Computed example of a mutant assay.
Amino acid sequence: MGKINIKMIILSIAIIGMLIPAGFAANDKQAVITYGETTYKNANYKNAVDTFFENQAHMDLKGVNSKIITAKEVNKISSTITGKQYNSNQIFSSALVNLNDNGNLKVTVDKSKITTITGNMYLSALKSSGITSGHVYVTSPVTATGESALTGIMNSYEVVTEVEIPDTVKKAANNEIYTQAEIVKESNVSADDLSNLVDDVKEKVQEENITDQPTIVNIINNYTIKYNINITDSDIENLAESIVQLQNAQEDIENYQTELNNALNSTNANLNTGFLEGLFN
């Protein structure tokens, strides 16, 4: 009888192992919500945001940590890029970062509310920062550009992984978002077309390790011709400047990515060990 019980236990464990989806061992500490402070102060706004996250991420938010992103935090970044200053009643954009979904980085944007920044723009800026895993959801209770959401997204990654993102990296990534947002708002180019152009330019610049702004301006000009995208010389200069800033932050980006990957690997190893120990017990 003892031998039969042991065989049954082993068989059960094998079956459970096949049934458990990848990432099952992760817990609520692997996800964080950042609310814009205007949204958090209004119960109806917060409920609308929570409903979007629950429906899109298919998860219960009760055990998920949350943090409020204030105008002061957003202004700390924006003041060094555009000079814009936001009031506490202007921070609507909210984000959920879910590292339980720990495959390749994905971004889901509520297009009915976020009017300027697209999923591809967030995706590109996060990858530029060294972030390559997790699922990010962005929404707002009212229409918003989405520019301030990147601050919350990066804050979420810091909370979940306990790895601080260097200020140089934050500023470079936010500058990328703000620069593209201004071009989209002031021209006829689509956000996705512009994002694809920027991705191609960044890839070429990084491959050839170019930091010279005039050279990057020429590369952008070539891609605008290739993709038939019409933007002003001033826009091209601003794009080139944002890419130079990213290039100058490469050492900090690589160091952060190494720390981030170590933290994620350590967390996943601990979670899997804990699950197996619990199962055998």
Rank of each mutant, 00 (worst) to 15 (best):
G278I: 08
I9V: 08
T51M: 10
N55L: 12
E182Q: 11
A14D: 07
A71F: 05
T232R: 13
G103Q: 01
A48V: 05
K29Y: 10
I153L: 03
N102K: 09
T215L: 07
V163R: 15
F280V: 15
I131H: 05
P141S: 12
T168K: 14
E158V: 01
T39D: 09
T51P: 00
S266E: 14
T211C: 04
E208S: 06
A48Q: 15
V74N: 05
S94P: 05
G134P: 02
I10D: 13
I68N: 06
E259M: 09
T161Y: 12
I33G: 01
D167R: 05
L11I: 09
N100D: 12
K72N: 11
S94E: 08
V205Q: 05
I15R: 11
D252V: 03
K46L: 02
Y256E: 06
N265G: 14
T179A: 01
N104A: 07
E73C: 04
N270D: 12
G278L: 10
L19T: 08
S242V: 05
S124D: 10
N188D: 15
N188E: 14
T168I: 12
I13M: 14
D60M: 12
V189L: 00
E254Q: 15
T118G: 00
G146Y: 09
M8I: 08
Q180P: 01
N209Q: 13
L264Y: 00
S112W: 07
L246V: 06
T161G: 03
L194A: 02
V32D: 07
A57T: 11
Y40V: 03
Y227R: 11
N120V: 03
V198L: 07
M8D: 09
S148E: 12
H135P: 00
S93C: 08
S133K: 15
V169D: 03
N102T: 03
S128W: 05
K76D: 13
S66I: 07
F92Q: 09
E186L: 06
G2Y: 15
G23P: 00
V198P: 00
M1F: 15
V198D: 01
N155V: 04
N281T: 14
S156T: 03
V205N: 02
L260T: 09
A269S: 08
S12E: 10
N175F: 02
N196C: 00
L96E: 02
D212W: 11
L61P: 02
D101E: 15
Q250Y: 06
N75Q: 06
N265V: 14
N5H: 11
S156W: 04
L279I: 15
F53S: 01
K67M: 11
S88R: 13
S93K: 03
I6R: 10
I225C: 02
T38I: 01
S94Q: 06
T118Q: 07
N281Y: 14
S242Y: 02
I15E: 11
H58Y: 04
A181S: 10
S94C: 07
I69M: 13
F275C: 05
K226G: 06
K67N: 13
L123D: 13
N98Y: 15
S93A: 08
V74F: 04
P166L: 15
